[in-house]
Design a protein around this nucleic acid. Structure first.
Length: 415
RNA sequence: GGGUAGAUACCGAAGCGGUCAAACGGGGCAGACUGUAAAUCUGCUGGCUCAGCCUUCGGAGGUUCGAAUCCUCCUCUGCCCA
């Protein structure tokens, strides 16, 4: 067996062992193909918001692994398809976004994708399907692409079938989505030499449609599909979603501190899986971290949180978040306040927690916390919702420590 | 275009003239127990200047002392027919 072939197999094995692979077409053929030298891979990202959330980290990490293995990666932002909305895995019609909004979202996405893969070399390039759909006529598209699709077969496809039979219906615009995605793949096959498309398992039908289209139109059988498993937490919740919303990669939406905490608080049963998927640590090192189980997993969780935060927000922020999580004063999330605001009668305790420190949604939220006995100022339990915070509550360094529940802590610092 | 069913808080879902800030379940938050885990138990879960007040039941009007509940119109969605 030659080296190239071994490398190709190793790469696939690694991806499998790390939990990236749910399904793939023609594994033998794919190894064969990868062994021939650097290939190109594409994964689509929907520009439905101006930031990605951590559910998108699976595809991003997959691209990063492939790039590190020497392959060319093509993150595709769906400037055109975003205008339609993929029905896959959705139970209802997605709301349509304006072209302007999508353009703005794409800018945000580009920056974030860059944290996972490097654009410095020629082996990565962001592509936007709006570039090749923009000038295309409907008639031409129907004739060249549409005729290769059997409606019968599409309806049998789970993605469409569920919607077709479900309560919310499926409208024509969404029904076209698969054709667009298939066309994307074919276009990138021709123009960028892209041979592999990866995506979430809900994309399986769409990706295979592309593989099919390439075979029918171009007569080529060296296009491959690989899908990732749908990542859920062990409690079944979709990855990266909390009641407050998603965990975003954008620091303005989810602070590095909160981001770190999300990973730090992952359930025991998810640590091993997440370390493999969301960090670049060697598998042997991961095995080491998790082998003792039980309480020892806390160290693994901290490592997980640190590594993931480092990838997304950089090492400095990761270090800071780690120190903050350990309770070190200097790294605690801090709100700077004016001394004059706390003169005399000071500020009402409700106001301090809800408005100034933004640790609670409303004053009512703070009241409830007080009632439940979970609100602290300088580690002293607050019992009176009418109480207030004055200069006397700040120590010599001008610090005052607020705590909401066990985990939410902030420091107020006098300016 | 015709018919029909529906639109309730974060989600699902009761309520069908006053006792409704709205049952119940999920989720979430807090407390106890713990390991910043899980499981379990308890409390909370619209807003506020909080024993009181204000705004919510798709939207706009109307009936009534009183409407999430009745009437009219509108918007959206499902289903059936054309």
């Amino acid at each position: 067996m030659n080296t190239e072939r071994r490398n190709a197999m190793d790469l696939l094995e690694t991806l499998k062992k790390r939990g990236f692979v749910e399904q793939m077409t023609d594994e033998a053929g794919l190894i064969e193909h990868l062994a021939k030298g650097p290939s190109s891979v594409y994964i689509g990202f929907d520009p439905t918001a101006d930031s990605l959330h951590c559910g998108s980290m699976v595809p991003l990490m997959a691209l990063a692994h492939l790039q590190r293995a020497g392959h060319r990666v093509l993150p595709l932002v769906g400037g055109a398809t975003g205008l339609i909305g993929d029905p896959s895995g959705k139970t209802e019609l997605r709301k349509l976004l304006s072209a302007e909004q999508i353009k703005k979202n794409i800018e945000g996405l580009k920056e974030q994708i860059g944290r996972f893969i490097s654009f410095e070399k020629q082996d990565a390039k962001i592509v936007n399907n709006a570039d090749w759909f923009a000038g295309r006529s409907y008639i031409e598209f129907l004739r060249d692409v549409g005729r290769h699709f059997s409606v019968n077969r599409m309806l049998a496809n789970k993605t469409y079938k569920d919607r077709f039979e479900g309560e919310n219906g499926l409208n024509f615009i969404e029904f076209n989505y698969q054709l667009f995605q298939a066309f994307d793949f074919m276009h990138l096959y021709k123009e960028e030499g892209c041979r592999i498309q990866m995506g979430g398992n809900d994309q399986w039908g769409n990706i295979c449609a592309g593989v099919d289209l390439i075979r029918r139109v171009l007569g080529k059988d060296d296009a491959f599909a690989v899908t990732f498993p749908l990542i859920t937490t062990s409690s079944g919740a979709k990855m990266g979603k909390t009641a407050d919303g998603a965990i975003w990669l954008d620091a303005a939406r989810t602070s590095p501190h909160d981001f770190f905490q999300y990973w730090r608080n992952v359930p025991d049963t998810d640590v091993d899986r997440f370390l493999k998927l969301f960090t670049f640590l060697e598998l042997s090192e991961i095995a080491d971290l998790t082998k003792d189980g039980g309480q020892a997993l806390n160290a693994a969780k901290e490592k997980l949180a640190f590594e993931v935060t480092k990838i997304v927000h950089g090492e400095a922020e990761a270090n800071k978040a780690k120190s903050g999580a350990r309770g070190e004063v200097s790294a605690m999330p801090t709100v700077t306040v004016n001394k004059s605001d706390f003169d005399g009668d000071g500020q009402g305790i409700l106001n301090v927690f809800s408005k100034i420190a933004e640790m609670a949604k409303s004053n009512g939220d703070v009241r409830r916390a007080i009632q439940g006995g979970g609100l602290y100022v300088n580690d002293e339990k607050v019992t009176d919702p009418k109480g207030s915070l004055t200069l006397a509550d700040f120590n010599d360094d001008g610090d005052c420590f607020l705590r909401f529940g066990k985990k939410k802590k902030k420091r107020l610092k006098l300016a």
